[in-house]
């Protein structure tokens, strides 16, 4: 597979996941503001922006400004529209490597964004968030149903998994900042589509320790940090199945494996206390894995400028 194509596929995976997770986060944020009269809108909005790594604008923040920034900023790939546009732009450059269905889904999603955004202006952003989640699910379904399990698929899923680790870490971070109200923890679970799964698993009320345990360590829930790390690791292993005799020589895999075992063998009751440290470790890992993968697979794909010798 061409390095350039692999790189684009990886980023399609990342951007679609980012759009989806951001819409989950924003949906919960907006709902919290509506449902909880004691929440300070400015502080809550500030937390959301900072967890997404977005520089804070001046002045008082509200749900509207937050949504404009994180949902509709066309120029920035940290917003939903920006991420989906970037995913589509990448897809356009590698469409021969995607199934027609998958390409059409990405392209049609992109083309529908202006209309969806206009609808959000009139009826509130809920419908927009739902649209993004549904399209992401649709795209994910086509990814599973129409793409052969070759290296192209692996790069897509690798991107998606890494982004998921990163985004879940950010969501946890945002929650960890606030103490108290259990509604916040429910919101966190909901933003990961994990509320029902959590209830079925623990059959108890929502407790912060258990929520963290579930979202970080659960082996079966696909959006947990552990599951995403393991998925990413599998992709890397399949990309380079020639394991040597000693250890693991692929840097990205080593980083992922270390992070996964670090989580796996922790005492779960300590998790909540150690959360800031863990999340920092996870985000560093994601960044390092990203550059290790680029260094190994995406070598030198910028166009060269040639100069005539005179």
């Amino acid at each position: 597979m061409l390095s350039r194509v692999a790189e684009s596929l990886y980023w399609i995976g990342r951007y679609v996941e980012r759009a989806e997770d951001t819409s989950r986060l924003l949906d919960v944020h907006v709902h919290t503001l509506i449902e909880d009269p004691w929440v300070d809108e400015h502080i809550a909005s500030r937390d959301v922006l900072s967890v997404m790594g977005v520089p804070l604008p001046d002045g008082r923040l509200d749900a509207r400004r937050t949504t404009d920034r994180l949902a509709f900023d066309r120029e920035d790939t940290s917003s939903i529209v920006g991420a989906l546009s970037a995913a589509r732009e990448n897809a356009r450059g590698v469409r021969e490597a995607l199934s027609s269905e998958l390409w059409e889904a990405l392209n049609a999603t992109y083309h529908a964004l202006p209309a969806q955004q206009a609808a959000a202006e009139r009826h509130g952003p809920g419908g927009f968030f739902r649209y993004v989640r549904e399209r992401a699910a649709f795209i994910g379904g086509l990814l599973d149903g129409t793409m052969p399990r070759d290296d192209g698929w692996r790069f897509l899923v690798l991107g998606r998994s890494l982004e998921r680790v990163d985004m879940t870490a950010r969501l946890l971070w945002a929650r960890g900042q606030q103490r108290g109200a259990s509604s916040g923890w429910i919101g966190l679970l909901k933003s990961c589509s994990a509320h029902e799964a959590y209830l079925r698993t623990y059959r108890t009320a929502v407790e912060p320790e258990k929520v963290v345990e579930f979202l970080v360590l659960d082996r079966l829930f696909p959006r947990s940090v552990y599951a995403a790390l393991a998925q990413a690791e599998t992709c890397l292993m399949e990309l380079d199945p020639t394991a040597g005799r000693v250890g693991v020589d692929d840097m990205a895999r080593r980083l992922l494996g270390r992070a996964r075992t670090d989580l796996e063998f922790r005492v779960s009751s300590d998790l909540l206390r150690e959360l800031p440290f863990l999340l920092d470790m996870l985000q560093t890992t994601c960044a390092e894995v990203g550059s290790a993968v680029a260094g190994r697979y995406f070598h030198h794909t910028a166009a060269l400028a040639w100069t005539a010798e005179r």
Binding site: L304, A305, W306, T307, A308, E309, R310
Partner: peptide, 13 residues
């Protein structure tokens, strides 16, 4: 006598 292209900065004959 000699012509070519190269990728890089400035050059002198």
């Amino acid at each position: 006598p000699l012509k070519g292209v190269y990728a890089g900065g400035g050059m002198q004959y």
